[in-house]
Design a protein around this nucleic acid. Structure first.
Length: 877
RNA sequence: GCGGGCGUGGCGGAACUGGUAGACGCGCCGGACUCAAAAUCCGGUUCUGGUGACAGAGUGUCGGUUCGACUCCGACCGCCCGCACCA
């Protein structure tokens, strides 16, 4: 048998799978439905190693579940709208549509070379009118249901990408794609009412048991529920009922008697009112605006404030409050975007308030004491204990209550006085979905001067993007297009204008997984079909979408359920977040980054640049990125070694949830193993051909043969085969693919060690043949092409992809003998190989009779002997 | 500051519910085949001492529980990730 030619073999099987539509699944397919999905790619033009890892993991699951008899839905599509296409249009004059579809074609070819078990008949691209017309219909649903609305708001404006961004897309004050400092602008924008689902999104996280805790925590954090009270302080000298009071939110109403000031956010309406009359206040407010949004290092910023001269009357002024009115400050550490944009300051029990009080000489009143008496006083550190153990002091009717009890008592009194109530606040804001860009799904609405906002009638969908657009001027091409936006009002017929904003692409990806269930249906989401396939059983992708995509998609399903589109409300029952693909980094003598193929390793281990022979410093392994130049092109790897080798390496070294370091040695090792399996196949087939009846695919059932009728090696091999089945199945089930790889290595070692002397009996040959078949079946999900080729070489006309997963039989897993350790005083001194389940007394005797054990005991007296059957013996001295 | 994760040979990593630490792979060392090299095959490989059988040490650090701890408990150190003047 010649050397394994991955290229021709892989092309052959890819063609056969394609011709036979092996991985196509219909809605009425037999077997339990199982939906495997990897996060669909943005069509940048080339696949990268992160994709290879993602789709390899998904493909192992898909092929395994398929072998287990499931009707597996495993589709692929394109997250095809987005800014890079427009940038390409600006830079190269190519139409975003042409650029996108060319990229899709290139990436589809690359993906197909990976040999993924995808149902390509379901392929979709979000930029296709056949997709986004349905999205427009869903948007109208949300609009009708009050879950999409338009309002003016302070929003994040990315000056480089010239569009607004959602809160989730602003990281450390910068746009997530452009990296530009985000500006605040007051604009009319479209929002999804995600905050309507605060509690639903939060509570349902509990039920997502097959999600990583990390992701659930991140979402919990992002939603940011906090429980406390909302209360209103009247301004001294003004009518308490004229609405001029200051409303604050607090999670510590129990510390109300420790209040010593009120602080307003610089953007608070009352702060602005003051600033309108007082130039000094205005200067302070403007200063805060300049520093606050830009700086990421807010925690080091000094607490600063401006005394407005206003005084607030304490809510318990007539109910036990023994001090005067509270001064009202504008403070740089209070945020307008959270709670009510105003706080009451309790310096003794909040660090920020304490810092502020010390800076402005405000009173510090301790009202909480620890169970042990607590601190004797408050110095530089606030006392923040809010546990059951702490007690309230110096607080009138609250004295001696625990913190939780005091919270309740305060809320009850506030409600009785009519100046406050228990309240819950969330960090999550409504999702801003409108973008001032061309390459996105148009929001199907018309602005009519007389009727206002008018939805485009459903019969008129899609609102298609115009083809003839110019990118030679700044701004939104839809807005500057000469004719597109000018339409009659669908309602009254007078001249009106289309909405020129398009959707955030995260809207596109919030329901694509549902559309995959019926990608060509005339309606967006045919209920019976979608409800039958959803939720996705196993979703696989990177951790970077922990909040953005995964939260939006969850919201979208819940919203669609509320408007009656579907019955399912959690999109992903199981989520797996894979680690990143990393590579060592290299720096040239001049300091610039070098790519791995620009670096040569000398025999002595030193690194030099290929170009000039100058020394190169190797840096730490980091996520593959263009900027660090430490990427490896999957296309080149597949060309050189084949897809199976690339897939095998992706699975072999690291557990999938951890980062994987790509090394040339590692790939070479995977390649050697591929070749080794091929040689193993050839050698074993030669043995079988030489044996009587061994060639026969319809020979005796190897599992039905009595042990006595087999050679010793065949008995062992049969056991080993079943052990391999058991361990690979168990590890694949729980995503421990690196362990499955190790088990397959061991099994191949066992099989490769079979060297029968002389001619083989038919019974032995049947066992050997079966072992080889099982090897092919076990590598099937991981190295599908080689597995398929092995299956064919074993004389089968059927496809390995259509075979059932092998079953491990218990009777072959049981061991007759076990090797157990013997410890003396906890240290291993000997091992004994004994019959399984041997009785304790004879084990104890055998252990104590052992020379090594006796020497280790020496002249010490044996106090006790612990015997754990089939495990260990410990002699206690 | 809050939340989560991780620390095991030269390296990636195994070790089931507390029971023989280092499976499997990479690398390295030695050998076989070869005129030679590549490829392949065989053997070795936690560290220290010993030719050896063996002995001692060893899972970030310190302490505890236990006949027995990588695993459980307490305190700490280091690294990574997410969120963050969130009231």
């Amino acid at each position: 048998m010649s050397r394994y030619n991955a290229k021709t073999v892989e092309e052959k099987w890819q063609r056969i799978w394609d011709e036979r539509e092996t991985f196509r699944v219909d809605d009425d397919a037999a077997g339990e439905r199982y939906y495997v999905l990897e996060m669909f790619p943005y069509p940048s033009g080339r696949i990268h190693m992160g994709h290879v890892r993602n789709y390899t993991l998904g493909d192992v699951v898909a092929r395994y579940k398929r072998a287990r008899g499931c009707a597996v839905l495993h589709p692929m599509g394109w997250d095809a709208f987005g800014l890079p296409a427009e940038n390409a249009a600006r830079e190269r004059g190519v139409h975003p549509r042409d650029w996108t579809y060319a990229n899709i074609a290139a990436m589809r070819t690359e993906l197909q070379r990976m040999g993924l078990s995808l149902d390509w008949s379901r392929e979709l691209a979000t930029c296709h009118p056949g997709y986004y017309r349905h999205q427009q219909e869903l948007i109208l649903d949300l609009l009708d249901g009050g879950l999409l609305y338009r309002r003016a708001a302070e929003v994040n404006w990315d000056p480089v990408d010239e569009t607004v961004l959602a809160n989730e897309q602003v990281i450390d004050g910068r746009g997530w794609r452009s990296g530009a400092l985000v500006e605040k602008r007051k604009l009319e924008q479209w929002f999804c009412r995600i905050t309507d689902f605060n509690d639903e999104l939060l509570e349902a996280l509990e039920g997502l048991e097959r999600w990583p805790d990390r992701v659930r925590n991140m979402q919990r954090n992002w939603i940011g529920r906090s429980v406390g009270a909302r209360l209103r302080f009247a301004l001294a000298g003004r009518d308490p009922d004229d609405g001029t009071g200051i409303e604050v939110f607090t999670t510590r109403p129990d510390t109300l008697f420790g209040a010593s000031f009120i602080a307003l956010a610089p953007d608070h309406p009352l702060a602005l009112e003051v600033a309108a009359q007082d130039p000094a206040a205005l200067a302070f407010v403007e200063e805060c605006r300049r520093s606050s949004t830009a700086e990421a290092a807010l925690q080091t910023q000094e607490k600063r404030g401006f005394d407005t001269g206003l005084k607030a009357r304490h809510v318990f002024a007539g109910a036990g409050w023994a001090h005067g009115d509270l001064p009202v400050y504008i403070a740089n550490f209070v945020l307008m975007g959270y709670g009510t944009g105003a706080i009451f300051g309790c310096p003794a029990h909040d660090q920020r308030d304490l810092d502020f009080a010390r800076a402005y000489g405000l009173p510090v009143r301790q009202v909480v004491q620890g169970g042990d008496g607590g601190p004797g006083g408050i110095a530089d550190e606030a006392y923040v204990d809010d546990s059951d153990a702490a007690r309230i002091v110096n607080s009138g009717f609250l004295d001696r209550l625990t913190v939780p009890a005091a919270k309740e008592a305060v809320i009850a009194r506030l409600e009785q006085l009519g100046c406050g109530t228990g309240a819950v606040t969330y960090r999550l804001r409504d999702w801003l979905i409108s973008r001032q860009r061309y390459w996105g799904c148009p929001i199907p609405v018309v602005h009519c001067p007389s009727c206002g906002l008018v939805p485009v009638p459903r019969a008129d969908l899609p609102v298609a993007l115009p083809e003839d657009v110019q990118f030679d001027q700044p701004g939104n091409p839809l807005d500057t297009h000469p004719t597109w936006k000018h339409v009659p009002c669908p309602s009254c017929g007078t001249a009106a204008q289309r909405e020129t904003d398009t959707c955030d692409t995260f809207v596109d990806s919030s329901w694509y997984f549902a559309r995959f269930c019926a990608p060509r249906a005339a309606q967006p989401l045919p209920r019976e079909i979608v409800d039958a396939w959803l939720p996705v059983d196993q979703y696989i992708g990177g951790i970077e979408h922990a909040i953005l995509h995964l939260l939006y998609a969850r919201f979208f399903m819940k919203a669609l359920k509320r408007v009656g589109r579907i019955a399912v409300d959690e999109p992903f029952a199981g989520l797996f977040t894979q680690g990143m693909v990393c590579h060592e980094t290299y720096r040239a003598a001049g300091g610039g980054w070098l790519s791995p193929d620009e670096v040569v390793r000398n025999p002595d281990g030193t690194l030099v640049a290929q170009s000039d022979g100058q020394p190169v410093t190797a840096g730490r392994s980091e996520k593959m990125s263009k900027s660090k130049r430490n990427t490896v092109d999957p296309g080149a790897i597949i060309e050189q070694y084949g897809a199976d080798t690339a897939r095998w390496f992706m699975l072999s070294d690291s557990p999938p949830e951890r980062d994987l370091e790509w090394t040339e040695d590692g790939v070479a090792g995977a390649w050697r193993f591929t070749q080794r399996l091929w040689r193993l196949l050839g050698e074993t087939l030669a043995l079988l051909n030489a044996a009587e009846g061994g060639r026969d695919a319809d020979g005796p059932d190897p599992d039905a043969i009595e042990d006595a009728a087999l050679s010793g090696w065949a008995t062992e091999l049969r056991r080993g085969t079943h052990r391999a089945i058991a361990s690979v199945s168990a590890t694949v089930e729980i995503f421990h693919f690196n362990k499955a790889v190790a088990e397959i290595h061991s099994f191949a070692n066992l099989l490769g060690g079979v060297k029968p002397a002389g001619a083989m009996a038919p019974a032995d040959a049947a066992v050997l043949r079966r072992a080889l078949e099982v090897l092919a079946l076990l590598i099937g999900p991981m190295m599908p092409h080689l597995a398929e080729e092995m299956w064919a070489q074993l004389g089968h006309d059927s496809l390995l992809a259509d075979q059932s997963w092998p079953i491990a039989e218990q009777r072959f897993l049981a061991q007759d003998q076990v090797t157990i350790g013997v410890q003396v005083a906890g240290k291993l001194r000997a091992t004994l190989t004994v019959d399984k389940d041997q009785d304790q007394d004879s084990l104890r005797e055998a252990a104590l009779a052992n020379d090594n054990v006796r020497r280790a005991i020496g002249d010490r007296a044996v106090r006790k002997v612990i015997v754990v059957p089939n495990r260990i013996i410990n002699v206690v001295v």
